[in-house]
Write a protein that binds this DNA or RNA. Structure first.
Lengths: 332, 332
DNA sequence: GTGAAAGCGCTAACAA
DNA sequence: TTGTTAGCGCTTTCAC
């Protein structure tokens, strides 16, 4: 039923090799022939079978992405970036959700390995040891996770936290809470560390938690934060920030006037005029695009070079974060 | 470099067909042999190459999903469901984002066609004519879109709207705004229609819009809604609902006390204790799972039967919506 | 510049 | 129950 290269060859009165060449090495076939072949193919609605091609070339033209949880608003934007860039580079993308489970994540990498040229691991839940073990299964690029000598795209957490701290300080806040996410989370450690470094003389940071990185975690945390007498809260992620907002509203604390809440990008509220919530953009989409670029460039160099490249720190891209439009919670 | 079936055969001292059978029709091979083969395969780390298998069986073991915009919080949950169910059924999934563009969507279906056994189209942006044209390219299942005789999974919009209306009425609201999304949107039409039908004698619905289905659209709409003197607002989607909330807070309207806002599921805030925002769950994840089930069952019947099945209305699943935990905005 | 033939990794007749 | 053979749709030597 589907149109094969044979059909095109027969119809165009040439051999299959000519048709193949017309698609893959057009300069090797005479203009006239090529036009004729391409026209015939077009007319018949022929599309090369990438699986068959991959069987012989060893390249599938696909790449994989694994995320820990699609319903975490952090990832869709990353995916969006991956998607867009992959399509520009003529790659199709396999998606998998490992459900926050490292074992599953490994299984998925292995299952994908044969069908893709490389895999992008978002916020991998694997331990360093596990990660080292899957390296070699296929080409890997990490997003939002750093391990020795592994190509990665990182968010500029330190910069983002610095901006958040400066922003809050400028608004007159002096005592700020940080609501921790899961203890084992690499991102959480980075964010905490970034904030601690960014804390200035005029700002005191109270670390609370860990809390569940969800809406409920945030609402629970809000009470503890209020009890600590802070005037601003930086949440581990947007879901928690939303939970905080909700709880504050319930308690009658007027957020936009007296309290500032900072979350991280995830949920796309960039355009908000006077936000109840200051959002630090982690530029997830840009990170996704960068990861594809990195992976593709890795795939387009020869084996030996790739090894060098992979080992080099030049593979560690840092996507700069930027703070969203300023928001003045004190009403000044 | 990768381990092939040949390697396993040689190592195990059997023919390739035996290895193949051990994997695909285990009951056809003697227990002892099978164990030996499987053990050898395991030891060598062999994984069958699905592309090669697909070349001969005609089945790829993959399925595709196309969404209009990953950054729209409606879709990740659908994807999550698709993912989970697909994996259970041993399918891998191709993901693509058509960027709200029907032409692109068509191109994606065609590009995917050869590599997948079927495609799930979420909230397709195609016109009916375009849709009819791609039918036949590959097996299709629609989510959140209905066209003649096409297998689809729909949200129970009418039921959801009825519940929302009842909920608001019970809370004492008498004048409610509906904030329209894009005019061309099938979902928007369905939601408007559902609400209009659900409107009871005691509730008056003011339709406003269309607005951009984003945060900004919501904040803009909030002002118009207030000017209309409503006490409750039903937004086209969660992003808009969030925008409304933000704007109301800015204007000093205390939402949890006097105003009720209803959104649709999308952003996972299910656990909220006393929400500022009542969420009607559209059960996106369940819809995703259902779509996979539908597609797989379509693929597992013979050609003629599939035709019948496809033509039958039994292919139209409706995933029931349910209202989130009640929330009393009047403070009673 | 083009064609014939071999073969990628695998499954499905057909034999044995 | 197992092995042998052909061939899926394609690319790539190697001749011409």
């Amino acid at each position: 039923m589907p149109v094969t290269i044979q059909d095109v060859a027969r119809e165009a009165g040439v051999s299959v090799s000519t048709v193949s060449r017309a698609f893959t090495v057009p300069e090797m076939v005479r203009d006239e022939t090529r036009h004729h072949v391409l026209a015939t193919a077009e007319r018949l609605g022929y599309r090369p079978n990438r699986a068959a091609r991959g069987l012989i070339t060893g390249k599938t033209g696909n790449l994989g992405v694994i995320v820990p949880d699609l319903s975490n608003p952090f990832f869709p934007n990353v995916l969006k970036g991956v998607q867009a860039r992959a399509r520009e580079a003529d790659y199709a993308v396999f998606l998998a959700d490992c459900d926050e489970n490292a074992t599953e994540e490994i299984a998925l990498v292995q299952a994908m390995a044969k069908q893709v040229d490389g895999v992008i691991l978002c916020s991998s839940r694997m331990s360093e040891a596990q990660l080292e073990r899957v390296v070699g299964t296929t080409s890997l690029v990490l997003i939002n996770r750093q391990v020795r000598n592994q190509p990665a795209v990182l968010m500029d957490t330190a910069g983002g936290m610095r901006q958040a701290a400066e922003h809050l300080a400028a608004l007159g806040h002096r005592r700020v809470a940080y609501l921790s996410g899961p203890r084992a989370s690499w991102s959480n450690r980075e964010r905490r560390r970034g904030l601690r470094r960014a804390a200035r003389q005029d700002i005191e940071v109270v670390e609370l938690g860990p809390f569940a990185p969800r809406f409920e975690g945030g609402s629970h945390a809000a009470d503890l934060a209020l009890a600590e007498g802070v005037t601003a809260i930086i949440a581990y992620n947007d879901l928690m920030a939303l939970g905080v907002m909700s709880r504050l509203a319930d308690r009658g604390v007027s957020v936009p006037r007296e309290m500032s809440v900072v979350g991280f990008d995830d949920i796309p509220m960039a355009g908000m005029a006077t936000p109840p919530l200051t959002t630090v953009s982690m530029q997830n989409e840009r990170a996704g695009r960068a990861a594809v670029d990195l992976l593709v460039s890795l795939l387009n160099v020869t084996g030996a070079e790739a090894g060098d490249l992979r080992r080099g720190l030049e593979c560690q891209l840092i996507v700069r974060a930027s703070t969203a439009v300023p928001h003045d919670p004190t009403g000044r």
